[in-house]
């Protein structure tokens, strides 16, 4: 018995894997908090340890992404659009990628966060991680969405989660403006190359929140099909 036409009918549902993937990506993003803590405390040993954990989680997320993609042949009939799903996975993956980039460059250059912007910067990173956490919450509704056939009152629940996601991302945007302004105030007194890379880090943290929001936004598209 190689398989019967009936059992071959059932493919692997992408719902659980996509939830596992964003979970890994978010676990990775969460490490940014202890990482920034270590950087602010000038504890580079700890920062190295956290960075290797981030790198490890990013790897796992990558594997999960590849696994998910390779299990999505064209011939699959799914309750959601395949191409939307693939975009969603790559947005989710960006969360992990950007986390690794931020941690990588900060560790590599032993970057210091100037005291004047430290609190705002910390808050800024925190909201980015919160945005990612909110995206996980939204994506975690997918199994219930499937159970209900992507219909009915569950849609209101998901819409509320996504509204909150949008609000967090907006908050993160505001903080980005604030942290950039604060850096601009003091940039003259800092080494120019360091400042350049600080702006880079600020940009990437913002992109991280963007990716989280965009992944959650794709969820709305998936439902609407």
């Amino acid at each position: 018995m190689v398989g019967t036409p009936f059992s071959n009918l059932f493919g692997q549902s992408p719902i659980k894997p996509i939830q596992q993937h964003i979970d890994l990506a978010h676990q990775c993003a969460m490490q940014l908090i202890p990482f920034i803590d270590a950087v602010l405390a000038d504890d580079w040993d700890k920062a190295t340890r956290v960075h290797s954990l981030i790198s490890d989680l990013e790897h796992q997320a990558d594997d999960a992404k590849i696994n998910l993609r390779s299990n999505l042949p064209n011939s699959l009939m799914m309750p959601v659009d395949r191409s939307d799903l693939l975009v969603m996975v790559s947005r989710q993956d960006n969360i992990a990628n950007l986390t690794k980039d931020v941690a990588g460059i900060m560790l590599g250059r032993k970057m210091e966060i100037p005291k004047a912007i430290a609190t705002t910067m910390y808050e800024y990173v925190e909201t980015a991680v919160e945005t990612s956490a909110q995206a996980v919450k939204a994506v975690n509704e997918m199994d219930e969405l499937l159970e209900l056939g992507f219909k009915g009152r569950i849609l209101d629940v998901v819409n509320q989660l996504i509204q909150e996601l949008n609000r967090l991302e907006h908050e993160n945007d505001e903080l980005q403006i604030k942290v950039r302004a604060a850096l601009f105030e003091i940039e003259r007194d800092l080494p120019p190359v360091d400042v350049m890379f600080l702006y880079k880090v600020i940009e990437w943290v913002g992109e991280l929140a963007d990716s989280a929001q965009s992944a959650g936004g794709k969820l709305q598209l998936l439902i609407a099909r």
């Binding site: 071959n8 009918l9 493919g11 549902s13 719902i15 499937l146």
Partner: peptide
């Protein structure tokens, strides 16, 4: 497949 069309099943292989 009918249940699948009602968006009730995660993935169905249409090759079958």
């Amino acid at each position: 497949l009918g249940v699948g069309l009602a968006r009730g099943i995660g993935a169905l292989n249409l090759k079958v």
